[in-house]
Design a binder for these strands. Sequence first.
RNA 1: GUGGACGUAGCUUAGUUGGUUAAAGCGCCAGAUUGUGGCUCUGGAGACCGUGGGUUCGAGUCCCAUCUUCCACCCCA
Length: 436
Amino acid sequence: MDLITQAPRGTEDVLPADSYKWQYVEQTALAVAQDFGYREIRTPVFEHTPLFLRSVGETTDVVQKEMYTFEDKGGRSITLRPEGTAGAARALLEHGLHNGALPLKAAYITSCYRYEKSQKGRLREFHQFGVECFGAAAPQADAEVITLAHTLLQTLDVKGVTLRINSIGCPTCRAKYHEALKSYFEAQVDDLCETCRDRLSRNPMRILDCKVPSCGAIAEKAPVMLDFLCDDCHNHFEAVKETLTEAGIDYVIDPHIVRGLDYYTRTVFEFVSDEGLTVCGGGRYDGLIEELGGPHLPSLGFGLGLERLLMIMEDRHARFPEPPKCELYLASMGEKAARRCFAIAAKLREGGVAVETDLVGRGLKAQMKYADKLGARYTIVVGDSELENGQAQLKDMQTGETEDILLDDSLYTTLYNKSLDRQLAGMADLFSNVAE
RNA sequence: GUGGACGUAGCUUAGUUGGUUAAAGCGCCAGAUUGUGGCUCUGGAGACCGUGGGUUCGAGUCCCAUCUUCCACCCCA
C-alpha cells in the first residue's frame, strides 16, 4: 500500500454503509443539546497557535507533544485544534457574546487533531460532540452540563458507562494541596517509578493516576484534594453532588480524576466505559476566559468522543435506526422505457420518495437482483406493454405480491398511502412493545 | 515518544523444512431460450503475497529497513 491509497496514520473513513450511524448519533446529540438550550456553534479547524498555548496550557502533554502546528504562507503559526473549548472561548470573546444574555450555552460537533501514537479509540483525527456553558458560576450549571451528557447517553441507550466526578478546587486551595502532595511523595521518592519521579516536579497529581502497583500503593494513602478544598469550593462541590443526587443521576466520587488540560477548576468529571475508556470528559474552567484576556467569566463544558461512543455502542450491540433504503426501484426494458423511468423517478423524488433506476444498462434480471441488494421495498417493471397501456405491476419485494397500478400521477398517491400504512404498522409495533 | 505483535484477492482465511503459471469460501459480474429478485448450478473478473532493499540458482515463505493496524506504557476523547 502506498501513500496514495492509504489514509494517514490515525485517520478513519466513514463509509456510505456506516454513515447513517454517525448521522443518528450527531443528530441525537444536537437535539438533546437543544432541549437544554445549547445552540450549535461552528468554529474553524485551525486557530492561531498562541490560543492553545494559553488555554490548554504550555506544560500539558497536548501542547508539548501532540499539536499539529505549522507555519502558513504568511508566516503565522497555526495549529489544528486539539480540542473544542479554546475555539469556542475565542469566538465568545471575539464577538463579545459575553456582553449578551448569560449564560451563553453552545454545542458543537467538531474534528480534533492530536499527534499521538494511534490505537483503537485513539486517533489523530477524531470527532467530538461538545458543550460549553459560559457565565454560570452556580453549581446547578455543573449539574446541568453533566446531566446533558448523561441524558445523551441514556437517549442513545448506552449501557456500561459510569459517571465519575471530582473537584480539583480553585488555584488557591489547589496550591496548598500540591504542597502537601509533594512533600508526601518526596518523603518516599525512592519507591516511586521513574516516570512518577518526573511527575513529582511537573504535575504531582498525575502520580495518583499511575498504574504501576508500587506507585498505586503509595498513591492510595496520599492526601486527597477533596480534603483541601476551601470553603467555597467545598460547598460548591457538595451542591453539585446534591443536585445530581436529587435528579437521580448516579455518580462515583473519584479523587483520582485529573484532567489533562490546565484550565480546569473545581468540578471535573468523566464518563468511563466498563472497559476503562473515557468516553466523555469535562469540567469547570472558571479562569479560562480571563486568561484569554476577557472578563472573569465562570464557565464549564465537556467533550465527548464520537468514535469512542460509536465503538462502545457497537460493542454492546446498541440499537440504531434502520439504514435508509430504496423505496422503489424502477426496472426498465429498452431505451425508451429507461427514459420514462428516469422521468417517473425524478417526479416521485419531488414528493420525497427514494427512487432508483438503472444507470448501467443492465438486463431485467440483473436489475431485479440489484434492486434486491439495495433492499428496495417495491419494484415496477416498465417495458413496451407498460409504455403502451400505462399500466404496470407494483411488486412488494418482501412478500413477492404484486398489484396493478397506473403509471400516472396516481402512482405518487399509491406509494404515499403504502408508506403511511407502513408507518402506522410500525407505530402499532411500538405500542405493542410498550404493552409488553 | 517507549516496548511488543501482525500485514496473502473487497472480506475471512489456506499456503508444507524457501522450489514450476499463489488456493478456498463469502462478496462482485455474467449466464441457465422467449419480460421479473431472494434458492440452486455454471462460468468470469479480481492479489505486483503492505512497500523498498538484501541473502539465494530460486522467497508469500529467511534477513534489514519502512509504512499501516493492533496490544501495553505514556496520555486522553
